[in-house]
Design a protein around this nucleic acid. Sequence first.
DNA 1: CTGATCATGTCAGTCTTCTGACACGCACCA
DNA 2: TGGTGCGTGTCAGAAGACTGACATGATCAG
Lengths: 146, 146
Amino acid sequence: MSQDGVDLETSLGYLLKEASSALRTAMEEVLRPLGMSVTHYSCLELLAQRPGLSNSELARGAFVTRQTMNVLLQGLEREGHVTRGEATVGKVLPVRLTARGRRVLGKASAAVRGVEVRMTGGLSVEESAEARRILRGMIGALRSGA
Amino acid sequence: MSQDGVDLETSLGYLLKEASSALRTAMEEVLRPLGMSVTHYSCLELLAQRPGLSNSELARGAFVTRQTMNVLLQGLEREGHVTRGEATVGKVLPVRLTARGRRVLGKASAAVRGVEVRMTGGLSVEESAEARRILRGMIGALRSGA
DNA sequence: CTGATCATGTCAGTCTTCTGACACGCACCA
DNA sequence: TGGTGCGTGTCAGAAGACTGACATGATCAG
């Protein structure tokens, strides 16, 4: 059975999906009371740390297509959480957080930080570093093959 | 900036999402030529390893809702990849792979195994074990908090 | 035995995300 | 100079996944 196939009990891929799913669920739980989805939060957090990112850059950072990020940004702009500036070069429109966007992000960021602390609470500093190193290696290996 | 928020460069949560996204993309690439999606494959692989699973159990194993798994199974049944037996207890319908389902799964399973090998190729046996241990710890910590 | 609770399968509607397609601007090279 | 390729923003349609809701059967407390 497990000689040619993928054993679910052992597979790192399955474990990765399981962990990612659990993280997403936990984030949804703490973000729901704030009226925010995980993708909303990801977009705002990206903008807070890298102001002026474009639509396409935000999409890559949040792991969605640029079309999806576009409709997301339209909603965020309508709600007054972000502003889209003038194109300085080409068609690229830099996006920035408004004061209101920064405010709602504050609570969300704290909530998500709580989830991350809960997730990594049982890990030593060495284990965290090891986990980061291994995950980065996996990502690199997967991307190189494409 | 990064004192209260979540630093994307360091965050294990972001790294987890990044790795999961890269894995999903890589799987889609190898499954597309076979005319199969990741969720299709997950469902079939689960059934191969645990025959007779019910709709709800499959949903939990593939990290989707039972409604989503239901429409997926309807499609797989229509294409002759699975059969749904009689309810032995309650309303629970055990699902099983057909010969045809097993055949298409064979190629897909090999392809996905190739992706997993590529992903974990650079890891030693000890590192793999460490990664599994850490991921299981994260999953447990996230679930316990719910 | 009876009522309450829970999990399951399923139908319907909605929301999210993706794929496909188009026009535009930039950079490079012949 | 003109063309080719690439990245970008955006519109439209299709596919995927989710939430809500209902009836049914199992389980357990009283």
